[in-house]
């Protein structure tokens, strides 16, 4: 019941909430559609009319500039109308319930909610309660899921590395609080990645991390040895006051990605980061700006992947692009 909520009765993708339960074929199709949009974003006129007349609401209960901007650009390039609602400073602070907020915006005859919320499960909750014609795309819920970020990361990896079945991928940092890591792990495994590793101190790992389908390393040099992709996660400042870590300095010393550490990985390994980066905390500037870094490519890919997901969820687009399902 929980996973099928993403599909309608005909088995078509209706909401995009989590990678959990999605097939390898569907993930590949998202990347294929994104590929076809990449050319759109490089043209002089960066627009396709696929979602003309549709209204997409960016419903952000948690501050985010980058994710909201790329969703907004993606929607505009699909010719949709976009409404940005920043709830962090809006209705719920006046005591309105989450459901009332949703009902009110729903009454404006919109077609899609792009939701960012600080509580895990918020996107599922909204998807379960919206009117039948409205789709929900999860733009990050608590520590649970950030599926479009995971897909843009997969898309980036595919561009550089091709076949997932030969890859070793290491995700380094605060796995415990990371919706990005959870979604990436699901996507990497669904795509048949040879080995998915997480590298973190025990305080930043959830219970039974192996159960998520990863190999666990507490030592970053061992964790990076021989990998093809290094994904660094952002370290929040709250982790120090919450007694997860002693200091930024100690974290950088023992887990930060430096050129020396990166040398343990395969020579052609790529370095990724969902952003925004903390230079000198989880990653050295020389690595972030170095030749192996694909961090800015990820940002650009974010628009194409979000265009793909939004158009697929709202439907009726694929044939127009000549992409077969």
């Amino acid at each position: 019941m929980n996973k099928s909520i993403q599909f309608d009765a005909a088995g078509r993708l209706r909401h995009f909430l989590t990678i959990d339960g999605l097939s390898r074929e569907l993930l590949v199709r998202i990347m294929d559609v994104a590929e076809s949009f990449s050319s759109v974003t490089e043209q002089q006129v960066k627009k396709v009319p696929l979602l003309r007349g549709k209204t997409i609401v960016n419903l952000f209960f948690e501050n985010s500039t980058r994710t909201r901007n790329t969703f907004e650009l993606a929607a505009k390039r699909l010719s949709a109308d976009v409404l940005n609602v920043n709830i962090a400073t809006s209705a719920t602070s006046k005591g309105e319930s989450l459901l009332d907020t949703i009902r009110n915006i729903e009454a404006m005859h919109v077609d899609m909610f792009v939701v960012r919320h600080e509580a895990s499960g918020a996107a599922h909750f909204i998807a379960r309660h919206v009117a039948p014609h409205i789709s929900v795309v999860n733009a990050g819920d608590g520590s649970h899921s950030h599926p479009t970020q995971a897909m843009l990361d997969m898309f980036t990896i595919r561009q550089y590395k091709g076949d997932f079945s030969k890859l070793k991928v290491a995700i380094v940092g605060d796995i415990l609080h990371s919706r990005v890591a959870r979604s990436e792990i699901l996507a990497l495994n669904a795509l048949g990645t040879a080995e998915v590793r997480v590298v973190a101190p025990k305080t930043l790992l959830p219970d039974d991390p192996e159960g998520l389908g990863v190999k666990v390393f507490h030592d970053v040099d061992q964790g990076l040895a021989g990998v093809d992709v290094v994904i660094m996660l952002r370290l929040q400042k709250e982790r120090m006051s919450g007694a997860f870590l002693p200091s930024e300095h100690e974290y950088f010393t023992y887990f930060g990605l430096t050129e020396e550490r990166l040398a343990k990985a395969n020579p052609d390994a790529i370095v990724m980061h969902p952003g925004p980066i903390n230079r000198g905390v989880e990653i050295d500037s020389r690595v972030a700006d170095g030749p192996q870094s694909v961090i800015l490519r990820q940002v650009g890919n974010g628009i194409a992947v979000r265009m793909a997901v939004m158009s697929m969820v709202l439907g009726g687009y694929v044939d127009a692009l000549g992409v077969t399902s």
């Binding site: 959990d20 520590s143 649970h144 959870r182 959830p206 219970d207 159960g211």
Partner: peptide, 15 residues
């Protein structure tokens, strides 16, 4: 609960 499901759903746990 601090277990497999809580880890997967990314919900705050009670050990």
């Amino acid at each position: 609960h601090d277990g497999a499901v809580g880890s997967r759903l990314g919900l705050p746990v009670i050990p």
